[in-house]
């Protein structure tokens, strides 16, 4: 981990950061990425049922790190059928990492990936509570699983499995800053993930407002987690220290209650 770039796991400088640019308009819902991800990560297929949509499985699982959401938007316009990749977006300021009690279970790579070490995960499931996007899922041993942006490919100069197979360039891999420039060049005024949470590793080129695609337009670390991190956590050690300190100061200044007549009772 390069310390100048990532102070305490937070992204402070975007140089060297890698990412994906997701462009829903280009997606044909072939789900090649969903399959390639499962293939590369050796994830088993899941039995699904017809629940009235082609979208399946219905949610991310410990066997599904990347899924294409099918969103039908009906309004005054024609029906809009949107296909959007849902997965960990590799927040520059990651709630999962903030809350994790096991150092190194979640960590940031030099490329800005929020990766995880299965052996260090203690299965407390707090990372899900800290995630603004409800991403982490847990395997049979309660260990964390999620998209790791192919941290077993990217450092070796290979692109992630999903972007590699995408036939329409709906998922493109590259230098994070260049991807933003690219999206702007293509006419996307605002790139989702450019600003919030110190930048999201997965950038979305949206034509409409984020809500249209089912995204929060102002994503942030959950308020309770931010309060815990900013107030309760620092106060805990401070409180303990202050309290012990106050007792010591009292002892050496004002001193104990000496009972001359009952001194004999001192154990």
């Amino acid at each position: 981990m390069t310390t100048q770039v990532y102070a305490q796991g937070r992204t402070r400088n975007q140089a060297g950061r890698k990412g994906l640019l997701v462009t829903p308009e280009r997606c044909t819902a072939c789900r090649g990425c969903q399959t390639a991800c499962k293939e590369w990560n050796h994830l088993l297929a899941e039995k699904t049922v017809n629940w009235g949509t082609y979208e399946n499985p219905p949610d991310l699982t410990s066997n599904l790190y990347n899924k294409i959401r099918f969103v039908e938007v009906t309004g005054n316009k024609d029906i809009d059928w949107l296909f959007i990749s849902r997965r960990c977006v590799h927040c520059g300021d990651a709630g999962c990492m903030e809350i994790c009690p096991s150092p190194g279970a979640l960590y940031r790579t030099r490329e800005g990936i929020v990766a995880y070490d299965r052996d260090k995960c203690i299965g407390c499931k707090l990372c899900q509570a800290g995630c603004p996007f409800d991403i982490p899922r847990y395997d049979a041993d309660d260990r964390v699983t999620k998209c790791h942006l192919c941290d077993d490919r990217v450092p070796h100069g290979l692109e992630p499995a999903c972007s590699k197979v995408c036939p329409t360039d709906a998922i493109r891999y590259g230098d994070w800053q260049s991807l933003i420039a690219q999206a702007k060049e293509e006419g996307y005024q605002t790139v989702y993930g450019e600003k919030d949470l110190a930048g999201l590793g997965i950038l979305y080129a949206f034509k409409e407002k984020p809500e249209y695609y089912g995204f929060d337009s102002t994503p942030g670390i959950p308020a309770s987690v931010a309060f815990w991190k900013g107030v309760l956590k620092p106060l805990s050690l401070l409180g303990l220290g202050a309290s012990v300190g106050a007792a010591l100061v009292h002892y050496v200044t004002i001193g104990p209650k000496e009972d001359e007549e009952s001194e004999g009772g001192a154990a």
Partner: peptide, 22 residues
């Protein structure tokens, strides 16, 4: 709750030992 406990418990320990001999 942890914050409350780490603040009050040291006083209890002190009161039960050095502060009140016996």
């Amino acid at each position: 709750a942890f914050l409350i406990l780490v603040i009050v418990v040291p006083f209890h320990v002190y009161a039960a030992t050095a502060l009140n001999p016996g």
